[in-house]
Amino acid sequence: MSERRSIGSILRRLFLVDLIKGLAVTLRYSARALVEPRDGANPLQSIYTAQYPKERPNIPERWRGAPKLNNDPRTGESLCTACNVCALVCPVDVIQVSHASREFRDGEKVKKKKVLTTFVFDTSRCMFCGLCQDNCPTLCLELTQEFELAVDSRAGLVWDREMLEKGINVVTYKK
């Protein structure tokens, strides 16, 4: 570092040019923040902070959040065939699937069908890698865009079938 001081640099120091420049940046951002519309987190605008929870963040479509078991929209029955693939493929063993075989009548014949009884998903240990969702053959298990998984007891983190089909209650706040 050389310590050369020209008259220009002395004047800049004397009249606090750098300080004023810095303050001008701050003032410009503050002034723009007053007039610009709030549109989530946009880097081209002055307000970068998202006003959560009053503003809902834009969660991408592919986000891997809270798990959900989908029902067939026509019949209302669970799409799950209790094939156990999700439990096998999970790296941290958070899924437990159990099934029973039930008899049903198909015309004249009596057939047996594997039906899902319980489905336990331990969200406390889940690392949301999405392997269960990728490997589900019937698009039943899905990781949704819901992300507010916090509860006040550890038992609440273990989701049963009812909870997985219903999903979590999202509390919305008024603006």
């Binding site: 987190a41 991408p60 479509e61 592919r62 690392m127 890698c129």
Partner: peptide
């Protein structure tokens, strides 16, 4: 601020930000 922009691109493509 800039890192957030990339994380958003990754998030939209992959579905997660960090892991």
């Amino acid at each position: 601020r800039e890192r957030e922009e990339i994380l958003k691109i990754i998030e939209n493509f992959i579905g997660a930000r960090l892991t």
